[in-house]
């Protein structure tokens, strides 16, 4: 679970009274050459959320989006003088401006939503990280190539190695590192039922929703895109 400094939340909420500005930009890595599965999922999640809220924004792709982000994770939005990164702070930021998708949910439903969200973070995100970075086949064929595509040699190799070590460390701490691919896939099966939340149909302005097949991630390259957008839509559905 990412951590968000409390000072940031306070600053964000203090200045949140103003209406949503026009020139909001969403920064993310290059979609075609660079972005990786877990990052793509998060980026689509934020994009889908903003679209569902009818908040105007412009997507800007930068090779160093990850390093520009205050939390070190993509995506982030630049809204006036504010820089807000990742889905949850963005949702909160929008809520402070009076834009919310779950105002009609009961407390119980909200609690349920939270539970789903943490299930996604704890299972799907870790599964995506595992498949991208620890599954040798995907790592060599996709992650290594894409992650180092924006750097000159040998910086790309060095950056990829550093990041792989960081991911491995995180997954070790969560006891995911020792799992086999089959175990990871079996774990993700538990999230299968998430796709059938009713509010998915409430919105009419969310093209990614059409992709919401509710599939559980299939752990191969062919499944990447639908898998990522699938998760993005899950998060939106419950947000």
């Amino acid at each position: 679970m990412p951590e968000f400094p409390i000072a940031d939340s306070i600053i964000t909420s203090l200045h949140a009274q103003e209406p949503w500005p026009e020139n909001v930009k969403l920064f993310q890595p290059y979609e075609v050459e660079q972005i990786l599965l877990p990052d793509n999922a998060s980026c689509l999640a934020v994009q889908a959320f903003l679209k569902m809220c009818n908040l105007p924004f412009e997507v800007e792709m930068r090779w160093n989006a990850e390093f520009m982000s205050p939390s070190g994770r993509v995506p982030f939005i630049k809204c006036g003088a504010f820089v807000v990164s990742e889905l949850e702070p963005v949702v909160q930021f929008a809520a402070n401006k009076g834009v919310t998708l779950c105002s009609n949910l009961s407390t119980e439903e909200k609690a349920e939503m939270r539970a789903y969200m943490s299930l996604i973070t704890n299972v799907l995100v870790n599964a995506e990280l595992y498949i991208s970075w620890l599954d040798d086949e995907t790592f060599n064929a996709v992650t290594k190539v894409r992650n180092s595509s924006v750097y000159p040699w040998p910086l790309g190799w060095f950056q990829t190695r550093t990041k792989r070590n960081a991911v491995a460390k995180r997954l070790k701490a969560l006891h995911w590192h020792s799992k086999t691919l089959e175990q990871v896939l079996a774990d993700t099966n538990g999230t299968r039922r998430l796709g059938v939340r009713p509010c998915i149909h409430d919105n009419n302005d969310s093209s990614p929703l059409s992709q919401a097949s509710g599939d559980c991630p299939q752990a191969r390259i062919s499944g990447r895109v639908s898998q990522a957008s699938g998760r993005a839509v899950f998060q939106e559905t419950i947000a």
């Binding site: 160093n64 390093f67 520009m68 820089v83 750097y151 910086l155």
Partner: peptide, 8 residues
């Protein structure tokens, strides 16, 4: 902020 990140 736009200049962040590793460069060789």
């Amino acid at each position: 902020r736009e200049n962040s990140g590793p460069q060789m």
